[in-house]
Amino acid sequence: MTELTRGLEVREGSFGVHGSPDTSGYGGLRKVVSEIPAAEPPFGSWFDKAVLALSKSLKAKDLMPEQVIEKVMIYRAELTLMIAREHLLTVMQSLRDEDELSFEVCLGVAGVHWPEEQGREIHINYPLLSMLHNRRLSVEVALPVKDPRVASVTSVYPGNNWHERETYDFFGVIFVGHPGLTRILMPDDWPGFPQRKDYPLSGVDVEYKGAIIPPPDERRWYT
């Protein structure tokens, strides 16, 4: 498990004001938004056992667990495994099939766009549920925005079919091996991926009693 605590975004100042004389004194503020730090074993609870079981299963498939599991994150008592993208399908297969893990249900996939994290702009997060053990776990994969390809998990969890189409629709993630990767919520001919951070909210100005109010993404805001 490599140490990964890089800055996702650096913010300066406050009130979103740039280039104007700063009278508030907040202009010098500097804040680094970082990734959730890697957890160090022992993780506590059932997490150690689960990670161990996954490592064992990966070894049986001739894979080095250190190369597959990039990072173990524990945040608010939730376990998230950061997985190298080329091994996603193998990990999912193990998580579903190993008796000690048996995460039978995948609850979909959600994308997050971090434009500042070079080479790992798009994160996708799969929450899993084990009804047998009554446990939850998340699997996360980071992809470069220039080549957002990852294996589709529909062969392991057929229920992720629509969820992957949704993530393709909104984030442009290409799930290789998906039976029919087309847009699902937006019209088929829609340009762009609406929920990426570089896609504007595309609201219109609103007139109210003579005053023009811009859409929320063009208003001044506080960080």
Binding site: M186, P194, Y199, L201, S202, G203, V204, P215, P216
Partner: peptide, 8 residues
Amino acid sequence: GGMFNNYA
């Protein structure tokens, strides 16, 4: 359009 002043 109401409160949903957006792309969709």
